[in-house]
Protein backbone atom coordinates (compact mmCIF):
# COMPACT_ATOMS: atom_id res chain seq x y z
CA UNK A 1 0.00 0.00 0.00
CA UNK A 2 1.36 3.36 -0.95
CA UNK A 3 1.10 6.26 1.43
CA UNK A 4 0.39 9.54 -0.29
CA UNK A 5 1.42 12.99 0.87
CA UNK A 6 -2.25 13.80 1.42
CA UNK A 7 -2.57 10.93 3.89
CA UNK A 8 0.48 12.07 5.84
CA UNK A 9 -0.88 15.61 5.99
CA UNK A 10 -4.22 14.27 7.08
CA UNK A 11 -2.56 12.21 9.81
CA UNK A 12 -0.77 15.24 11.25
CA UNK A 13 -3.96 17.26 11.09
CA UNK A 14 -5.81 14.59 13.05
CA UNK A 15 -2.89 14.31 15.46
CA UNK A 16 -2.94 18.03 16.33
CA UNK A 17 -6.65 17.80 17.05
CA UNK A 18 -5.87 14.86 19.32
CA UNK A 19 -3.15 16.77 21.14
CA UNK A 20 -5.51 19.72 21.65
CA UNK A 21 -8.24 17.44 23.03
CA UNK A 22 -5.63 15.68 25.16
CA UNK A 23 -4.40 18.99 26.58
CA UNK A 24 -7.97 19.80 27.60
CA UNK A 25 -8.42 16.41 29.30
CA UNK A 26 -5.07 16.84 31.07
CA UNK A 27 -6.12 20.23 32.42
CA UNK A 28 -9.46 18.83 33.61
CA UNK A 29 -7.67 15.95 35.32
CA UNK A 30 -5.17 18.30 36.95
CA UNK A 31 -7.99 20.57 38.10
CA UNK A 32 -9.75 17.87 40.13
CA UNK A 33 -6.59 16.04 41.17
CA UNK A 34 -5.44 19.23 42.96
CA UNK A 35 -8.58 19.10 45.09
CA UNK A 36 -8.33 15.35 45.53
CA UNK A 37 -4.76 15.60 46.77
CA UNK A 38 -5.47 18.51 49.06
CA UNK A 39 -8.64 17.32 50.78
CA UNK A 40 -9.22 13.74 49.59
CA UNK A 41 -12.47 14.57 47.78
CA UNK A 42 -13.21 13.25 44.29
CA UNK A 43 -15.25 16.06 42.80
CA UNK A 44 -17.98 14.46 40.68
CA UNK A 45 -19.08 17.93 39.60
CA UNK A 46 -15.73 18.55 37.87
CA UNK A 47 -17.22 18.46 34.36
CA UNK A 48 -20.12 20.74 35.23
CA UNK A 49 -17.66 23.27 36.65
CA UNK A 50 -15.94 23.36 33.25
CA UNK A 51 -19.37 23.97 31.71
CA UNK A 52 -20.01 26.80 34.17
CA UNK A 53 -16.67 28.30 33.11
CA UNK A 54 -17.75 28.22 29.47
CA UNK A 55 -21.12 29.81 30.21
CA UNK A 56 -19.50 32.51 32.35
CA UNK A 57 -17.41 33.23 29.26
CA UNK A 58 -20.58 33.43 27.15
CA UNK A 59 -22.15 35.91 29.58
CA UNK A 60 -19.01 38.07 29.67
CA UNK A 61 -18.19 38.05 25.96
CA UNK A 62 -21.48 37.53 24.13
CA UNK A 63 -23.97 39.15 26.48
CA UNK A 64 -21.92 41.88 28.20
CA UNK A 65 -19.81 42.36 25.08
CA UNK A 66 -16.38 42.38 26.73
CA UNK A 67 -13.45 41.78 24.36
CA UNK A 68 -12.26 38.17 24.60
CA UNK A 69 -8.84 39.06 25.95
CA UNK A 70 -10.53 40.87 28.83
CA UNK A 71 -13.26 38.27 29.27
CA UNK A 72 -10.78 35.42 29.70
CA UNK A 73 -9.00 36.75 32.81
CA UNK A 74 -12.30 38.00 34.27
CA UNK A 75 -13.79 34.54 33.73
CA UNK A 76 -10.83 32.90 35.50
CA UNK A 77 -11.06 35.27 38.46
CA UNK A 78 -14.82 34.75 38.77
CA UNK A 79 -14.36 30.98 38.65
CA UNK A 80 -11.75 31.10 41.41
CA UNK A 81 -14.29 32.98 43.57
CA UNK A 82 -16.77 30.25 42.70
CA UNK A 83 -14.22 27.68 43.90
CA UNK A 84 -13.79 29.64 47.12
CA UNK A 85 -17.54 29.48 47.68
CA UNK A 86 -17.87 25.86 46.58
CA UNK A 87 -15.80 24.56 49.49
CA UNK A 88 -18.34 25.96 51.94
CA UNK A 89 -21.07 23.78 50.39
CA UNK A 90 -19.43 20.44 49.75
CA UNK A 91 -16.22 20.43 51.75
CA UNK A 92 -16.26 22.33 55.03
CA UNK A 93 -19.68 21.12 56.27
CA UNK A 94 -18.79 17.54 55.29
CA UNK A 95 -15.44 17.19 57.06
CA UNK A 96 -15.17 13.71 58.55
CA UNK A 97 -18.27 12.41 56.77
CA UNK A 98 -18.09 9.15 54.81
CA UNK A 99 -16.97 8.89 51.20
CA UNK A 100 -20.53 8.08 50.19
CA UNK A 101 -21.99 11.29 51.60
CA UNK A 102 -19.27 13.47 50.09
CA UNK A 103 -19.49 11.75 46.70
CA UNK A 104 -23.28 12.10 46.58
CA UNK A 105 -23.03 15.78 47.57
CA UNK A 106 -20.62 16.63 44.77
CA UNK A 107 -22.69 14.58 42.33
CA UNK A 108 -25.87 16.40 43.39
CA UNK A 109 -24.07 19.72 43.00
CA UNK A 110 -23.14 18.68 39.46
CA UNK A 111 -26.78 17.83 38.68
CA UNK A 112 -27.89 21.20 40.06
CA UNK A 113 -25.26 23.05 38.01
CA UNK A 114 -26.05 21.24 34.73
CA UNK A 115 -29.81 21.66 35.07
CA UNK A 116 -29.43 25.18 36.43
CA UNK A 117 -27.52 26.12 33.29
CA UNK A 118 -30.27 24.55 31.19
CA UNK A 119 -32.91 26.46 33.13
CA UNK A 120 -31.12 29.78 32.53
CA UNK A 121 -29.66 29.35 29.03
CA UNK A 122 -31.91 26.68 27.52
CA UNK A 123 -30.74 23.48 25.87
CA UNK A 124 -29.61 25.00 22.54
CA UNK A 125 -25.84 25.16 21.98
CA UNK A 126 -23.92 28.40 22.61
CA UNK A 127 -20.49 29.32 21.40
CA UNK A 128 -17.76 31.86 21.91
CA UNK A 129 -15.91 33.56 19.08
CA UNK A 130 -12.35 32.25 18.74
CA UNK A 131 -9.55 34.44 20.12
CA UNK A 132 -7.98 34.97 16.67
CA UNK A 133 -9.92 35.63 13.52
CA UNK A 134 -8.45 33.26 10.92
CA UNK A 135 -9.74 29.74 11.46
CA UNK A 136 -6.77 27.70 10.22
CA UNK A 137 -3.07 28.01 9.50
CA UNK A 138 -1.39 26.12 6.71
CA UNK A 139 1.92 24.43 7.62
CA UNK A 140 3.22 22.56 4.56
CA UNK A 141 -0.27 21.53 3.58
CA UNK A 142 -1.29 20.56 7.09
CA UNK A 143 -4.27 22.68 8.03
CA UNK A 144 -4.32 23.26 11.75
CA UNK A 145 -7.24 24.99 13.40
CA UNK A 146 -6.17 28.11 15.27
CA UNK A 147 -8.44 27.55 18.30
CA UNK A 148 -6.75 24.17 18.72
CA UNK A 149 -3.31 25.78 18.56
CA UNK A 150 -4.40 28.32 21.15
CA UNK A 151 -5.65 25.48 23.37
CA UNK A 152 -2.33 23.68 23.10
CA UNK A 153 -0.34 26.88 23.70
CA UNK A 154 -2.31 28.05 26.74
CA UNK A 155 -2.46 24.53 28.20
CA UNK A 156 1.29 24.14 28.02
CA UNK A 157 1.76 27.57 29.65
CA UNK A 158 -0.72 26.65 32.39
CA UNK A 159 0.85 23.28 33.09
CA UNK A 160 4.32 24.85 33.27
CA UNK A 161 2.89 27.46 35.62
CA UNK A 162 1.45 24.76 37.89
CA UNK A 163 4.74 22.87 37.87
CA UNK A 164 6.65 26.04 38.80
CA UNK A 165 4.12 26.90 41.50
CA UNK A 166 4.66 23.55 43.21
CA UNK A 167 8.42 23.30 42.72
CA UNK A 168 9.63 26.87 43.18
CA UNK A 169 7.26 29.00 45.22
CA UNK A 170 6.61 29.20 48.93
CA UNK A 171 2.84 29.15 48.32
CA UNK A 172 3.19 25.94 46.32
CA UNK A 173 5.23 24.25 49.04
CA UNK A 174 2.67 25.27 51.63
CA UNK A 175 -0.18 23.89 49.50
CA UNK A 176 1.71 20.65 48.95
CA UNK A 177 2.53 20.21 52.63
CA UNK A 178 -1.14 20.80 53.47
CA UNK A 179 -2.09 18.06 51.04
CA UNK A 180 0.47 15.60 52.36
CA UNK A 181 0.11 16.06 56.10
CA UNK A 182 -2.26 18.78 57.28
CA UNK A 183 -1.50 18.23 61.00
CA UNK A 184 2.22 18.61 60.52
CA UNK A 185 1.80 21.55 58.15
CA UNK A 186 -0.32 23.31 60.73
CA UNK A 187 2.28 22.67 63.46
CA UNK A 188 4.92 24.19 61.24
CA UNK A 189 2.91 27.36 60.90
CA UNK A 190 1.14 26.85 57.57
CA UNK A 191 -2.35 28.30 57.48
CA UNK A 192 -3.92 25.09 56.17
CA UNK A 193 -7.45 26.51 55.88
CA UNK A 194 -6.11 29.21 53.61
CA UNK A 195 -4.15 26.65 51.56
CA UNK A 196 -7.27 24.51 51.06
CA UNK A 197 -9.09 27.66 49.89
CA UNK A 198 -6.25 28.43 47.49
CA UNK A 199 -6.38 24.88 46.14
CA UNK A 200 -10.11 25.13 45.45
CA UNK A 201 -9.61 28.50 43.79
CA UNK A 202 -6.75 27.23 41.61
CA UNK A 203 -8.71 24.12 40.64
CA UNK A 204 -11.77 26.12 39.64
CA UNK A 205 -9.66 28.71 37.83
CA UNK A 206 -8.20 25.92 35.68
CA UNK A 207 -11.67 24.49 35.06
CA UNK A 208 -12.88 27.94 34.05
CA UNK A 209 -9.97 28.31 31.67
CA UNK A 210 -10.82 24.95 30.09
CA UNK A 211 -14.45 25.97 29.67
CA UNK A 212 -13.40 29.22 27.99
CA UNK A 213 -10.89 27.45 25.72
CA UNK A 214 -13.23 24.72 24.48
CA UNK A 215 -16.18 27.08 23.91
CA UNK A 216 -15.11 28.09 20.36
CA UNK A 217 -14.37 24.46 19.39
CA UNK A 218 -16.95 22.24 21.05
CA UNK A 219 -20.03 24.47 21.40
CA UNK A 220 -21.46 24.72 24.89
CA UNK A 221 -24.45 22.61 25.92
CA UNK A 222 -25.70 22.21 29.50
CA UNK A 223 -24.92 18.49 29.50
CA UNK A 224 -21.35 18.85 28.22
CA UNK A 225 -19.87 18.29 31.68
CA UNK A 226 -20.37 14.53 31.74
CA UNK A 227 -18.25 13.76 28.71
CA UNK A 228 -15.45 16.09 29.74
CA UNK A 229 -15.41 14.80 33.32
CA UNK A 230 -15.30 11.17 32.17
CA UNK A 231 -12.27 11.82 29.98
CA UNK A 232 -10.68 13.72 32.87
CA UNK A 233 -11.33 10.82 35.25
CA UNK A 234 -9.95 8.39 32.67
CA UNK A 235 -6.81 10.53 32.30
CA UNK A 236 -6.41 10.58 36.07
CA UNK A 237 -6.78 6.79 36.35
CA UNK A 238 -4.24 6.17 33.59
CA UNK A 239 -1.91 8.59 35.32
CA UNK A 240 -2.24 6.87 38.69
CA UNK A 241 -4.90 9.04 40.36
CA UNK A 242 -3.21 11.83 42.20
CA UNK A 243 -0.17 12.55 40.06
CA UNK A 244 -0.01 15.76 38.06
CA UNK A 245 2.58 14.32 35.64
CA UNK A 246 0.54 11.15 35.22
CA UNK A 247 -2.59 13.17 34.52
CA UNK A 248 -0.81 15.07 31.73
CA UNK A 249 0.42 11.87 30.09
CA UNK A 250 -2.97 10.21 30.64
CA UNK A 251 -4.86 13.15 29.15
CA UNK A 252 -2.64 13.37 26.07
CA UNK A 253 -2.80 9.61 25.45
CA UNK A 254 -6.58 9.61 25.66
CA UNK A 255 -6.95 12.62 23.38
CA UNK A 256 -4.63 11.20 20.73
CA UNK A 257 -5.88 7.61 21.02
CA UNK A 258 -9.57 8.49 20.70
CA UNK A 259 -9.13 10.77 17.73
CA UNK A 260 -6.92 8.33 15.81
CA UNK A 261 -9.39 5.52 16.59
CA UNK A 262 -12.31 7.64 15.46
CA UNK A 263 -10.53 8.68 12.25
CA UNK A 264 -9.16 5.34 11.15
CA UNK A 265 -11.34 2.64 12.75
CA UNK A 266 -14.77 3.52 14.04
CA UNK A 267 -16.26 6.74 15.30
CA UNK A 268 -19.30 5.12 16.88
CA UNK A 269 -17.25 2.91 19.19
CA UNK A 270 -14.80 5.69 20.06
CA UNK A 271 -15.92 6.16 23.65
CA UNK A 272 -15.94 2.39 24.12
CA UNK A 273 -12.21 2.30 23.44
CA UNK A 274 -11.38 4.81 26.18
CA UNK A 275 -13.32 2.89 28.79
CA UNK A 276 -11.81 -0.42 27.76
CA UNK A 277 -8.37 1.15 28.14
CA UNK A 278 -9.36 2.45 31.57
CA UNK A 279 -10.79 -0.92 32.61
CA UNK A 280 -7.56 -2.52 31.36
CA UNK A 281 -5.55 -0.17 33.54
CA UNK A 282 -7.75 -0.96 36.53
CA UNK A 283 -7.27 -4.70 35.96
CA UNK A 284 -3.56 -4.81 35.25
CA UNK A 285 -2.00 -1.59 36.39
CA UNK A 286 -4.17 0.22 38.92
CA UNK A 287 -1.19 2.19 40.15
CA UNK A 288 -1.12 4.00 36.82
CA UNK A 289 1.27 4.37 33.98
CA UNK A 290 4.18 5.45 36.20
CA UNK A 291 3.69 2.55 38.61
CA UNK A 292 3.21 4.68 41.66
CA UNK A 293 2.36 2.82 44.88
CA UNK A 294 -1.20 3.51 45.93
CA UNK A 295 -1.70 3.38 49.62
CA UNK A 296 -4.67 4.04 51.78
CA UNK A 297 -4.87 6.64 54.48
CA UNK A 298 -6.34 5.18 57.66
Amino acid sequence: MEITLRQVQDFFQVLTNGVAAGAVYALVAVSFILVYKAVGIVNFAAGEIVAVGGYVGVVLANILGLPLLVALPVCIVLMSFFGYGFQFVVYRPLKGKSFLIIAISTLATGIILANGIQLIFGPEPRRLEPLLANPTVDIKGVFISVPNLIIIFISVLTLIGIKLLFSKTRLGFQMMSTAQDPEMARLLGVNTDKMVSFTFMLSFAIAGLVGFLVAPVLYLVPTMGLGIALKGFAAAIIGGFGEVNGAIVGGLSIGILEILFARYLSSSFQSLLIFLVVLGFLYFRPEGIFNREIGQKV
Binding site: A103, F233, L272, F275, V278, L279, L282, Y283, P286, Q296
Partner: peptide
Amino acid sequence: FPTLKLRGHYLAIASIGVGQI
Protein backbone atom coordinates in the same frame (compact mmCIF):
# COMPACT_ATOMS: atom_id res chain seq x y z
CA PHE B 1 -13.59 -7.41 40.11
CA PRO B 2 -10.91 -4.88 39.11
CA THR B 3 -12.34 -1.84 40.85
CA LEU B 4 -13.41 -3.12 44.26
CA LYS B 5 -9.88 -4.02 45.29
CA LEU B 6 -9.11 -0.33 44.98
CA ARG B 7 -10.53 2.59 46.89
CA GLY B 8 -14.18 3.56 46.89
CA HIS B 9 -14.04 6.28 44.26
CA TYR B 10 -12.82 3.86 41.60
CA LEU B 11 -16.17 2.04 41.58
CA ALA B 12 -18.07 5.32 41.44
CA ILE B 13 -16.03 6.50 38.44
CA ALA B 14 -16.04 3.09 36.74
CA SER B 15 -19.82 2.86 37.17
CA ILE B 16 -20.32 6.10 35.20
CA GLY B 17 -17.96 4.73 32.56
CA VAL B 18 -19.82 1.43 32.36
CA GLY B 19 -23.06 3.30 31.97
CA GLN B 20 -21.58 5.00 28.90
CA ILE B 21 -20.16 1.73 27.49
